[in-house]
Nucleic acid binder design. Sequence first.
DNA 1: ATATTCTGTAACCATATGGTTACAGAAGCC
DNA 2: GGCTTCTGTAACCATATGGTTACAGAATAT
Lengths: 115, 115
Amino acid sequence: MVTEAPSVFAAVADPTRRAILDALRTGERSAGELATLFPISRPAVSKHVRVLRQAGLLRERRAAQSRLYSLDPAPLRHIERWLEHYRVFWAARLHDLKRHVEAAERKRPRTPRTP
Amino acid sequence: MVTEAPSVFAAVADPTRRAILDALRTGERSAGELATLFPISRPAVSKHVRVLRQAGLLRERRAAQSRLYSLDPAPLRHIERWLEHYRVFWAARLHDLKRHVEAAERKRPRTPRTP
DNA sequence: ATATTCTGTAACCATATGGTTACAGAAGCC
DNA sequence: GGCTTCTGTAACCATATGGTTACAGAATAT
């Protein structure tokens, strides 16, 4: 088995880690604050935080004894970019795929997402 | 440890499984064909295929002795929807703004013992 | 200076995961 | 029918993973 470089996909695979990221959407939080949000021990949260940090998803700021973590969503773009390839599939079922892609390419060079 | 319901996040976390999905973007393939694409045994691929099937990402069609797998990207929308919340963070620099504002707001001298 | 607070790490444990080889079962071919 | 082909599953193994408790270390408070 090959030990894979820590991937943002793997980091985000765990529901607790996604919940941590979700919690940080509203602002930075200390490690202790994060731990109170979940029914697991503080060291367990600390380990999840480390995984997220290694994936580049967290920023760390030291304030007094606390360490304040905040979101760095940049690596999520790797997922975003990977999903790009599949977004075109959502409009049609697979046996319609060729027609769909060809039609899209004939109409415009790219299919931008309209916000 | 709680056994989690099979998630599309977990299914996509493994690089081999992502590669299988990528291979299916160009069209349906038999189980044997998929196995030739990777340096692992055919049963190993079969197990990955099962995980992807349980996540709802694959359609199965039987033709002669073969089973032809094709892409069903619909469950990827769960990831897409989750990413939506973060897209705003990299679209604007809102997260830096939020941090700044909250740093100003959190000018309490001590953290209270219990909220 | 000493105690308290907040945090990460080490050591350990149980289970999940990804891999293998061996086998079984269904569908075509002779 | 009987062999061959293609595939999934079972049994097993090694490692990764997520959890715990115990401990160490840095910064604040007394």
